[in-house]
Simulated scan of single mutants.
Amino acid sequence: MYDLTGFQRDLLYVINGLDEPHGLAIKEELEGYYEKDIHHGRLYPNLDTLVDKGLVEKGQVDRRTNYYTLTRRGQREIEARREWEAEYLDDREAAELAN
């Protein structure tokens, strides 16, 4: 996951948190977080990158709508990232509580 942009990591987290979301559902979630419009020209190329990297699987709902799910590799990458973050966040929180 080290080679992903922050936006791509956020896409993984949103996809992980929703049940087979379609592009517009992902877009709405990110717009709520970023508090600004996410343009299709940013969203879909980044989703395609995640598909190409084997982190996300894209399926078809109908001719106009795709859904996205994490692959097992995508899930493992999120878990590894959370463990890595916890190493640093847990230590800092423990130190703050001790003071």
Results as ranks from 00 to 15, higher is better:
residue 16 N to A: 11
residue 16 N to E: 10
residue 17 G to F: 01
residue 17 G to A: 04
residue 18 L to T: 01
residue 18 L to R: 13
residue 19 D to L: 01
residue 19 D to R: 09
residue 20 E to G: 06
residue 20 E to D: 09
residue 20 E to Y: 07
residue 21 P to D: 07
residue 21 P to K: 09
residue 21 P to G: 01
residue 21 P to N: 02
residue 22 H to T: 02
residue 23 G to I: 07
residue 24 L to Q: 14
residue 24 L to H: 14
residue 25 A to L: 11
residue 26 I to K: 10
residue 26 I to M: 00
residue 27 K to D: 03
residue 27 K to F: 00
residue 27 K to E: 04
residue 28 E to H: 09
residue 29 E to K: 14
residue 29 E to Y: 08
residue 30 L to K: 14
residue 30 L to S: 10
residue 30 L to F: 12
residue 31 E to Y: 09
residue 31 E to F: 10
residue 31 E to V: 05
residue 31 E to W: 11
residue 31 E to K: 14
residue 31 E to H: 09
residue 32 G to T: 01
residue 32 G to R: 14
residue 33 Y to G: 03
residue 33 Y to C: 05
residue 33 Y to N: 00
residue 33 Y to W: 11
residue 33 Y to A: 11
residue 34 Y to M: 13
residue 34 Y to N: 09
residue 34 Y to W: 15
residue 34 Y to H: 15
residue 35 E to C: 03
residue 35 E to L: 11
residue 35 E to M: 06
residue 36 K to V: 08
residue 36 K to A: 08
residue 36 K to L: 08
residue 36 K to R: 15
residue 36 K to S: 08
residue 36 K to N: 05
residue 38 I to E: 04
residue 38 I to G: 02
residue 39 H to V: 13
residue 39 H to E: 15
residue 39 H to W: 11
residue 39 H to P: 03
residue 40 H to A: 14
residue 40 H to N: 10
residue 40 H to P: 01
residue 41 G to M: 00
residue 41 G to W: 06
residue 41 G to D: 10
residue 42 R to Q: 14
residue 42 R to A: 12
residue 43 L to V: 04
residue 43 L to F: 01
residue 43 L to W: 01
residue 43 L to T: 04
residue 44 Y to N: 12
residue 44 Y to C: 05
residue 44 Y to H: 07
residue 45 P to T: 06
residue 45 P to E: 03
residue 46 N to A: 15
residue 46 N to K: 11
residue 47 L to P: 00
residue 47 L to G: 01
residue 47 L to Y: 02
residue 48 D to L: 13
residue 49 T to L: 03
residue 50 L to Y: 05
residue 50 L to S: 00
residue 50 L to D: 02
residue 51 V to Q: 08
residue 51 V to H: 04
residue 51 V to M: 10
residue 51 V to Y: 04
residue 51 V to E: 13
residue 52 D to G: 07
residue 52 D to L: 07
residue 52 D to N: 09
residue 52 D to S: 12
residue 53 K to G: 04
residue 54 G to N: 05
residue 54 G to Y: 10
residue 54 G to V: 02
residue 55 L to A: 05
residue 55 L to I: 05
residue 55 L to T: 02
residue 56 V to F: 12
residue 57 E to P: 00
residue 59 G to L: 02
residue 59 G to S: 08
residue 59 G to H: 06
residue 60 Q to S: 15
residue 60 Q to K: 15
residue 61 V to E: 05
residue 62 D to P: 05
residue 62 D to H: 07
residue 62 D to S: 13
residue 62 D to A: 05
residue 63 R to C: 06
residue 64 R to T: 06
residue 64 R to A: 12
residue 65 T to V: 13
residue 65 T to P: 00
residue 66 N to V: 06
residue 66 N to E: 02
residue 66 N to Y: 11
residue 68 Y to S: 03
residue 68 Y to R: 04
residue 69 T to F: 00
residue 69 T to W: 00
residue 69 T to Y: 01
residue 70 L to I: 06
residue 71 T to M: 12
residue 71 T to Q: 08
residue 72 R to A: 10
residue 72 R to K: 11
residue 73 R to D: 13
residue 73 R to N: 11
residue 73 R to A: 13
residue 74 G to K: 03
residue 75 Q to N: 07
residue 76 R to A: 11
residue 77 E to M: 14
residue 77 E to I: 11
residue 78 I to Y: 04
residue 78 I to C: 01
residue 78 I to H: 04
residue 79 E to I: 13
residue 79 E to M: 08
residue 79 E to P: 06
residue 79 E to N: 07
residue 80 A to C: 03
residue 80 A to G: 12
residue 81 R to Y: 14
residue 81 R to H: 12
residue 81 R to D: 12
residue 81 R to L: 15
